[in-house]
Structures are given as structure tokens and as C-alpha cells.
Amino acid sequence: MLAKTDTVIHTNDLNIYYGDFLAVRDVSIAIPNNAITAFIGPSGCGKSTVLRCFNRLNDLIKSFRLRGNVQYHGQNLYAPEVDPVEVRRRIGMVFQKPNPFPKSIYDNIAFGPRLVGYKGNMDELVERSLRGAALWDEVKDKLKESGTALSGGQQQRLCIARTIAMQPDVILMDEPCSALDPISTLKVEDLLQELKEKYTIIIVTHNMQQASRSSDYTAFFNVEQTPKGRTGYIVEYDRTEVIFQSPKEQATQAYVSGRFG
């Protein structure tokens, strides 16, 4: 078992390549425990790419390469003996587009626990996960119905419930509200505040208000043109109120005040 530390994920001079192309450079960041960290920045700046490094989802892309390291509670996630499957069980992910399985609501939640041979009471776990995602009251009478029949906002909360059911340590969220209406978005944001009691959350968002409302820490990414393409990097990383009220960098100030991006 890994020792719990105040820093959950720590990267040091992380460089991410697709083939020869340097997509993101020099990422050094420490993600604190039980807090919400937001990644903001213009499109193509590598926020999602960095996020996907944290649960090794980029492994699915063949040309993906990484230099530097990503430490999770002090363990290098890219060490050869690390099993990406095990990493993803501890570091869950919620995607931009709600992606429930074409299975019943119940089976959507039970999918992950069944993979790991969950021995406890599945009904209880399903209920607890759905309550945790503030969805229980809306779906408790139709657990056998297909998850894909829910509204977009409900689907996204179902995906969050599905992630919680794995009892992860960290939840990565890649623009979880970008496909949702404002009311569903608020529900998910309220949910984030509850979730951070138990989990460490990293959220990529294009929504400035969302970042300033919900997060404790914010990393501002930017992108620069290089001869080979556009490379992203972190401009500034600090407590959210600092980033939004008194950032050190001009570019951050310009971005959060809406003057560019």
C-alpha cells in the first residue's frame, strides 16, 4: 500500500510527444490531496493531454511518448513494473462527452466493481454510488432501464457514479460539463464540492466561472508556435484566488479576464 501524502500527483519536467512532435513541455506540478485542481487554457494547449497522462490513458495512442516522470504518492506511474490497468482503477476518469455503456443503469455502475471481483453487497454499492453522484432519487425506480436513455446531465452523473463505484483515490474530469446545459452544470459543480471531501479531483475546463467557483488550485496552460507545431506549457500554477485576482504573469491576467483565448 502506498503511503498517503499531501501531494497526490507530482510531475517533474514532463514532456509529452506524439511521434517526434512535442505536444506539451516542461510540466512540473504538484496536485494536492482532497482538493479540486482546475486546468484552464486555450484550446490545443495540452490540458487534456496532461490529464490523460495521470491515468495512463494516453497509452492507447500508439505514437504517444513521455519524458520526465509522473509520481503518484511517490511511485513513478511510468515505471516498467507499473500495471496501467491498476493505475486506472485508482485514478478514475470522467470524459467530456457522457459515455454510459449501452447497458442498464445498474450494470453501468456494477461494471467496474465486477471487473475487480467485488465481494460486498452490489445493490448497496450501486445505491451508494448513485447517491454519491446525486442521481439516486431520479433513477431509483428505473435501475433496469438503459443508461443511454437518460438525459445528458443525468448520463454524466451516471458516469461520475460509475467512477465513484470503483472507490478511486483521484478523479480526473475532462471538461465534464461542456456538453451539459447550465442547470445540469450547476448540479455537477455542487457535486464536485461534495466529492472533494473524499477524493482528489483534477478538472479540465474551458469555463472560467467554473474554475473560479469550484476549484482550489488552478493551472493556466498556454500554447506557443514552434517549427514543428503547437506546444503547450504551464504558464502559472497557484491557488485559484491568486490566479484569478492577482496572477504574476501578464498572459494569465489577460486570459482570466477574458482578453484572449
Binding site: 491515468n55 490513458l57 490497468v85 486506472r88 482503477r89 470524459f95 459515455n99 461494471f111
Partner: peptide, 10 residues
């Protein structure tokens, strides 16, 4: 769907 499954540690 594939990503969702991998994301859950499948």
C-alpha cells in the same frame, strides 16, 4: 465506450 471501459480499469 472503449475509453470508458479502459478508464474504469478494464
Amino acid at each position: 465506450l472503449r475509453q470508458a471501459s479502459y478508464g474504469l480499469g478494464a
